[in-house]
Design a binder for these strands. Structure first.
Length: 132
RNA sequence: UCAGUCGGCUGGGCGGCCGCUCCGGCGAUCACCGAAAGGUGGCCGGGGAGGAAAGUCCGGGCUCCACGGACCACGGUGGCGGAUAACGACCGGCGAGGGCGACCUCAGGGAAAGUGCCACAGAAAACAGACCGCCGCGGCGCGUUGUGUAUUGUCGCGGCAAGGGUGAAACGGUGCGGUAAGAGCGCACCGCGCUGACGGCAACGUCGGCGGCAGGGCAAACCCCACCGGGAGCAAGACCGAAUAGGAACGGCGCGGCGGCGUAUCGCGCAAGCGAUACGUGGUCGGGAUCGGUUCGGAUCCGGCCGUUCGGGUAGGUUGCUUGAGGCGCCGCGCAAGCGGCGUCCCAGAGGAAUGGCCGCCACGCGGACGGCGCGCGCGCAAGUACGCGUCAUCCGCCCUACAGAACCCGGCUUACAGGCCGACUGAUGCU
């Protein structure tokens, strides 16, 4: 699994599809090439101390390694932004949330050419395009 | 046995499955990403967080920059000795205070160089002075049958600072003598100042002599004195090095505007033709510089485009990057901090940042239940029994571990921390 390292890649992913969950926010961006899927992690200082940030990033990384592997699409950059609840939630729950977020992110990409989204009198938050 | 003081160590163990990172070896010489520099990818073996890695409060190494010296400014330190690469930290003495004690805590140059401050309270806060008060004398009154004395009130003059009260602090303290009352006025002890001898490297201590006491506190208010101190930091620094913009050199094609003619190509059109672009040709108008030159006129160059090369340098990459005032063991020196010698070991090196995720068993700890034993105590004639404490065994549950994550490296300090272990010492009490 290739990791995102460059700041520019993170900034590019920040403007793409987002899928928030209790413990994290998943971002996904389609690149122009067909290279392998890459993933990066963002855990800010707001989350907690250095020990807590390390632990949070390691749990997220493990979820991606165990459950994400075959589901990540080639040519995509993913970014997981860690949130504080990820420290306490059970591991199985985190895996389910990641699975759901991945589906929403891919579906949102498919519906990206819809002009119908302003017509929906719905949520102004950049939430998921569908309810799961 | 109980109570306590000080110091040190430790910071769960074993196993299973799946991963991460670094090093070495083998394999491949290939594939992928990138413009390049460079990076990623296989198999085997080995290494992989802390006592605080933290705060970044001091000190050093290392790197770059600056640099003749002195003074000033600014900052720091402040009894003495030792140790060190260095320090305000460390070790051992010294002083003051607290504790029965082991020991703990605190301040540590100068207040007779100067300035400033001392709130509130209090009469008075620094230079002496006197609110209540104490004492004497005088006048008037009270008292007395009268006079005097004693007592007492009030006014005036004078002496005093013992007592009261205020305060963080009140012009040395306590006691005795002394006195009208008092006062270092006199004496003893303590304190203070000066001084001598002895001990100690020294800070200082011990003993003695002299002085009747002069000099309130704050220097963490300014200040004075002595000593120390260049600045910035691994995002330091070194090397490699895009795109874009800008710089330099070389080469090539072209002077610029306007209209004319010719040729070629393209578009539209059946065609004639029209339009656009490029090249050639000559006409007219025109900016700057240089050259030879009397002017006219002429020549070259610039302002334009294209290509190649070079240097600086951004993103990015590589390095610095872990062998070091290093760890461990033994011996020697030292009360100690620490120093020396010998032997031995290599012990994390990430970089949007590895050292992890899930699980099983065990140990430790905490809570609960029940039972056994011991002790205390209540009830009871007694058997016995309620309650509390300690301990042991079984079962169940909880935490399934505290504080916390290297970022160039060391020496200290400070702060956080579930628990466990060890040693030295002190005071009570019991037994021998």
């Amino acid at each position: 699994m290739e990791r995102l390292r460059q700041r520019a890649d993170f900034l590019a992913a920040a403007g793409a599809e987002k899928a928030p969950a209790a413990a994290f926010v998943l971002q996904a961006r389609k690149r122009d090439d067909d290279g392998p899927a890459r993933i990066g992690f963002t855990v800010t200082k707001k989350v907690g101390t250095a020990t807590e940030r390390n632990r949070l990033r390691r749990r997220l990384r493990e979820i991606v390694r165990l459950t994400g592997g075959p589901r990540l699409r080639t040519g995509y950059d993913y970014v997981l932004i860690g949130r504080r609840p990820a420290l306490g939630l059970p591991f199985g729950r985190l895996a389910e949330d990641f699975d759901g977020a991945l589906r929403r992110v891919h579906a949102g990409r498919a519906a990206v050419k819809r002009p119908a989204i302003p017509s929906r009198t719905g949520p102004r938050a950049p939430g998921p395009g569908e309810q799961s």
